[in-house]
Amino acid sequence: MNTMTDNTTVGYVTEDGRQIGGTMMEMKNITLRFGGVVAIENISFDIHEGEIRAIIGPNGAGKSSMLNVISGFYHPQDGEVWFNGARRPTMKPYQVAAQGIARTFQNIALFKGMSTLDNIMTGRLTKMKSSMLSQAIWWGKAAREEEEHRAKVEEIIDFLEIQAIRKTPVGRLPYGLQKRVELARALASEPKLLLLDEPMAGMNVEEKEDMSRFILDVNDEFGTTIALIEHDMGVVMDISDRVVVMDYGKKIGDGTPAEVLANKEVIDAYLGVSDD
């Protein structure tokens, strides 16, 4: 299967009238094992350009493992990852990042002692061209380059409305804001594909609403394709265009939120099956 079939390259139109592009990423028959444990078993799905794609499932279903496969952190034993129409060879995470894939983490992974601004600046690292030495001397091209990056970072700060904490050390911020800073850092690399690992975990209703709004705005404003893992079904159904459902490492459903909600296997996985 070296050429993609037509129906996967063609986009579709969402319920709210947005035009979604062709396939951006395709996972083909992915299997991931840790010793004897099969985390992901023969799963295939695709992510279209410009869509918001959710991966849901109960605890231990293999969602985070899947995200780690996409971000190049785990290498599946079987299966192929296709990105932008080409098969992706085994890559280091930083090479994947350079391809335009950025992510946030389930457990916040920021530099706690650094300010919000500096944390977001680290998201620009893959874009910086001048050497470490010339950056340290901060002269000529390196200085100009940093100004450009800073301008981009300021746009993101404005976009996510975190001006007030620009200079605050991240460790002092409440959880919800740290999550937002993490999103900002991921956005700073101007990704084509943004992976969000439980962006709403541990948030209250108001913070969840804010975060949903930001995710939709990112998708709308920058055209960023988003793949997210989330437990809160309400949020998933509200903001995603298509949903993959996993259970015990297997794919048990794939489709629009409405389709997935009507799927018997999905209902069983989430609500449990009665014994009789």
Binding site: F159, R213, D217, D220, E221
Partner: peptide, 8 residues
């Protein structure tokens, strides 16, 4: 003033 989120 701010076009964010108003595209659609």
């Amino acid at each position: 003033l701010d076009p964010r989120g108003l595209r659609k």
